[in-house]
Simulated scan of single mutants.
Amino acid sequence: MKNDETPAVERYLPLKPNWFHVLLSLATGEQHGYGIMQEVLERTDGKIRLWPATLYGTLERLLDADLIAEVKLRRSADGEDARRRYYRLTALGRRVLAAESMRLEDLVRVIRAKRRIARSEA
């Protein structure tokens, strides 16, 4: 990551959980709102449910922050609903997701180290 990009990325950290889950859902490609909602539900074993009002409010805020963009021109696959709005990560969104993922991985490393210390003292 370049130094001049760091402040732009860091101002979003730590990410709100809803933002993180939406960005993570878009990491592998374009997705429509219902698809994002379903992926988050499946990935979290039903622990996190993005209800429509929450999801679409989150999508609007992510659009305003330039972390995601709406896909304007998209080939429609057979059976797809043309009314669906598809979203993708922006370059900034991808950098923010990477930075947040690294932050969370660092946190998990600290937790694991603390557990090892606590077990060895018991």
Score class of each variant (00 low, 15 high):
residue 87 Y to H: 13
residue 94 R to F: 04
residue 108 V to I: 14
residue 80 E to R: 05
residue 83 R to M: 05
residue 96 V to A: 06
residue 90 T to A: 07
residue 94 R to S: 08
residue 97 L to P: 05
residue 107 L to M: 11
residue 62 L to V: 05
residue 81 D to C: 12
residue 96 V to N: 07
residue 101 S to E: 11
residue 94 R to W: 04
residue 86 Y to P: 10
residue 60 E to W: 10
residue 96 V to W: 09
residue 91 A to K: 15
residue 85 R to P: 04
residue 83 R to E: 04
residue 86 Y to M: 09
residue 74 R to V: 01
residue 94 R to Q: 11
residue 81 D to L: 14
residue 68 I to M: 03
residue 95 R to A: 05
residue 78 D to E: 13
residue 103 R to C: 00
residue 65 A to H: 10
residue 75 R to H: 08
residue 76 S to G: 00
residue 83 R to C: 00
residue 81 D to N: 15
residue 79 G to P: 11
residue 108 V to S: 07
residue 88 R to E: 08
residue 107 L to C: 08
residue 68 I to T: 03
residue 74 R to H: 06
residue 80 E to T: 05
residue 95 R to N: 03
residue 103 R to Q: 06
residue 104 L to K: 12
residue 90 T to D: 06
residue 66 D to F: 10
residue 59 L to M: 08
residue 73 L to A: 10
residue 90 T to R: 13
residue 71 V to F: 01
residue 88 R to Y: 00
residue 61 R to N: 11
residue 101 S to Y: 06
residue 101 S to A: 08
residue 95 R to T: 01
residue 82 A to P: 13
residue 88 R to G: 02
residue 96 V to Y: 08
residue 62 L to S: 03
residue 70 E to G: 12
residue 64 D to A: 15
residue 84 R to M: 00
residue 70 E to Q: 15
residue 59 L to S: 02
residue 101 S to Q: 12
residue 98 A to P: 08
residue 95 R to Q: 07
residue 64 D to H: 14
residue 78 D to T: 08
residue 60 E to T: 14
residue 94 R to M: 04
residue 104 L to V: 07
residue 79 G to Q: 09
residue 94 R to Y: 04
residue 99 A to K: 14
residue 67 L to P: 10
residue 106 D to G: 14
residue 67 L to A: 03
residue 86 Y to L: 08
residue 77 A to D: 04
residue 96 V to P: 10
residue 100 E to W: 05
residue 59 L to N: 02
residue 106 D to E: 13
residue 98 A to H: 14
residue 82 A to K: 07
residue 98 A to L: 14
residue 60 E to I: 11
residue 70 E to P: 15
residue 71 V to G: 01
